[in-house]
């Protein structure tokens, strides 16, 4: 069947497929080339490759601090989004009424709104709470906007779960907590892990909200990249981007492997 399809794919179809793939991948791969440039500004290498900007990245206190801060923020906000998104999805699954469908939709709102809308709103509210330029502010914002990713993957996993499993567990003597821990969690773990990966990636490369909320004290990696581009076109930026892409790819591979093992 698949070889049949391959043999019969016409040249225009194949050509446009490859064009799309190139348009998707190439702009990212250019970053790798730029990151090993030997010139002092953002450009392709001229007389050979140089790792000076990677050296610069891993010795510069500013960049290292931003990497560390982004990592901490991503970890904590992922845990928060994971816990809230998972429990919220389980709740909606158990109730499974019109109201819970509306609630599930509400949990997806941060994904549907432009981040700039959320960022602007968060800026106003966080200012009153004194959360601007604090870990708390960014973590809460990233956790809330990360929840939809968890809700989507966990709800998908729950859709394949027999609702009677909960009744069975409880009739066998498991309270609600034990039922969630011993029966529901093990069966939806692949969905939870996928959600955590996506929530982590979301926080790790989130820029728009960070533009509103981050400041001198908390300066996430995407925020520093943005400033780098605006101010001095430092090729270190490209090295950072390369690292960012590799980390993201690594997480996606981890997620795919996890899914593959389940099947």
């Amino acid at each position: 069947m698949s070889s049949f399809a391959r043999d019969n794919a016409s040249l225009p179809v194949r050509g446009s497929a490859w064009t799309i793939i190139c348009l998707m991948i190439l702009p990212m791969s250019v970053v790798f080339a730029v990151s090993v440039t030997d010139r002092p500004y953002l450009s392709l290498p001229e007389n050979g490759v140089s790792l000076q900007y990677y050296r610069n990245l891993f010795t510069s206190p500013e960049w290292l601090l931003s990497i560390w801060q982004s990592f901490v923020i991503a970890c904590v906000s992922t845990m928060v989004a994971g816990a809230l998104g998972t429990l919220g999805s389980i709740g909606c699954w158990r109730i499974s009424s019109g109201a819970s469908n509306v609630l599930r939709l509400v949990m997806l709102v941060p994904l549907m709104l432009p981040p700039i809308v959320y960022g602007l709103g968060a800026y106003q509210v966080w200012a009153d709470l004194g959360w601007i330029n604090t870990y708390t502010g960014i973590i809460v914002a990233h956790a809330m906007t990360g929840i939809p990713y968890v809700v989507i993957t966990v709800s998908t996993a729950l859709a394949g779960l027999d609702p009677k499993l909960e009744q069975a567990a409880r009739s066998l003597g498991a309270g609600m907590g034990a039922t969630i821990w011993y029966v529901i969690f093990p069966n939806i773990m692949p969905g939870i892990l996928s959600g955590l990966v996506f929530a982590f990636i979301h926080s790790w490369d989130e820029l728009v909200i960070a533009l509103f909320i981050a400041g001198r004290n908390v300066f996430t990696l995407p925020r520093r990249m943005w400033d780098g581009i605006n101010e001095n076109l430092d090729p270190t930026m490209a090295a950072v981007a390369s690292v960012l892409i590799l980390v993201t790819l690594g997480l996606l591979v981890f997620e795919l492997l996890g899914r593959g093992r389940k099947r």
Partner: peptide, 20 residues
């Protein structure tokens, strides 16, 4: 009384065995 305290065995139409 909540179901887990009643100690009534239950058998369901779709068996509801724990797949994991």
């Amino acid at each position: 009384m909540p179901p887990e305290k009643r100690s009534f065995g239950m058998v369901f139409q779709g068996y509801a065995l724990f797949p994991h």
